[in-house]
Design a protein around this nucleic acid. Structure first.
Length: 255
DNA sequence: ATGGTTGCTTAGCAA
C-alpha cells in the first residue's frame, strides 16, 4: 500500500502534472493540499477517469484539501474543530484512518496568523485524543508547515527564527507527534537532508536550499510496517511545478 | 544592483 501527500499549489493549475504523477507513482491514497478551488469547481471527472475517488473539502482562492483513493472511503470528516478554513479532511478505509492536514503557515512569528497556527496544532492534538487511539491504524499526512529539526533544513541558520523552524512551532508539532505518531520519512532517512519544499525564488531548488515541511506520520502499528518513504523530487523539476514535491510511503499492508 | 516567484483575481494577498 502506497500513501502519498502533496501540496499541489492549485489543483487546476497542476491538473496535467497531477494526472501524470498519479499514473507514474500509482499511490493507493493521495492527500492533496492547497487545491485552491471550491468543491463545485474541483476537476472530479478527470480524477475519476484516472481511477481515483475524490473526497474534497474545498475553498475559493485559498487552502482546500482532498483525499484521492483507489477505494471508496467508508466515511469522511471535513474540518478541524471550529476552524472556518478548509484545512482538514479525514477518510476511513476499514480500520485505516487517513488524515489530510494543511497546517496554517503562520506568516510571521508573533502575528495573529502565528497564534492561529499554534492553536490549530493544539486542536489537531485534541482531535487525535478524541477520535483515535495510538494503538489503531492512523496516518496523518500533509503540509504541516514545520521542519521538525535542523536536519530537515538545508540552511538552518537562515530559517532559525522563521515560522517554519521556530521552537514554539516545533514544540506544538512535537505535541501532536507525542500523542503516538512516528515520522515515517525520518525512520527511513535518519540522517536528514531530505526536503519537500523549495522557494520558487532565488533558484532555491537547483541549489537544493529546501526544507522538509510535508510529512507522513503514522501510529506504531502502521509505521512498523512501512518499507520505504521518500520525496519524489522529479515532480519539482520541469515546467510549472508546485513549490512542494510529493512525499510517498509504502506499507506492507493492503488498503 | 532596493530585486526576487507563483496563483488567484485583477492590485493585492498569501505562501
Amino acid at each position: 500500500m502506497k500513501i502519498a501527500t502533496w501540496n499541489v499549489n492549485s489543483v487546476r493549475a497542476r491538473l496535467d502534472r497531477l494526472l501524470a504523477w498519479l499514473e507514474r507513482a500509482a499511490p493507493d491514497v493521495a492527500c492533496l493540499q492547497e487545491i485552491k478551488v471550491t468543491d463545485e469547481a474541483f476537476p472530479r471527472e478527470a480524477i475519476e477517469r484516472a481511477g481515483y475517488r475524490a473526497a474534497v473539502f474545498g475553498q475559493k482562492t485559498y487552502n482546500g484539501v482532498a483525499i484521492l483513493s483507489r477505494r471508496e472511503p467508508d466515511a469522511v470528516h471535513r474540518g478541524l474543530g471550529d476552524d472556518p478554513q478548509a484545512r482538514f479532511l479525514a477518510a476511513a478505509f476499514g480500520k485505516l484512518s487517513v488524515l489530510c492536514a494543511y497546517v496554517p503557515n503562520g506568516q510571521m512569528v508573533g502575528s495573529d496568523k502565528w497564534a492561529y497556527k499554534l492553536d490549530w496544532l493544539a486542536q489537531l492534538r485534541a482531535y487525535l485524543e478524541k477520535n483515535h487511539k495510538p494503538s489503531g491504524q492512523v496516518v496523518l499526512c500533509g503540509d504541516l508547515n514545520i521542519a521538525p529539526d535542523d536536519l530537515d533544513v538545508a540552511e538552518p541558520e537562515v530559517w532559525a527564527d522563521s515560522v517554519l523552524c521556530h521552537p514554539e512551532g516545533r514544540a506544538a508539532l512535537e505535541s501532536v507527534v507525542e500523542w503516538g505518531l512516528v515520522d515515517v520519512v525520518r525512520k527511513h532517512h535518519p540522517d536528514g537532508g531530505v526536503y519537500s519544499w523549495w522557494d520558487y525564488r532565488q533558484l532555491a531548488f537547483p541549489k537544493n536550499r529546501g526544507l522538509r515541511l510535508d510529512h507522513i506520520l503514522a501510529t506504531e502499528p502502521l509505521a512498523s510496517r512501512s518499507t520505504e518513504a521518500a520525496v519524489d523530487r522529479a515532480e519539482r523539476k520541469g515546467a510549472s511545478p508546485s513549490d512542494h514535491a510529493p512525499v510517498v510511503a509504502a506499507f506492507d499492508a493492503r488498503l
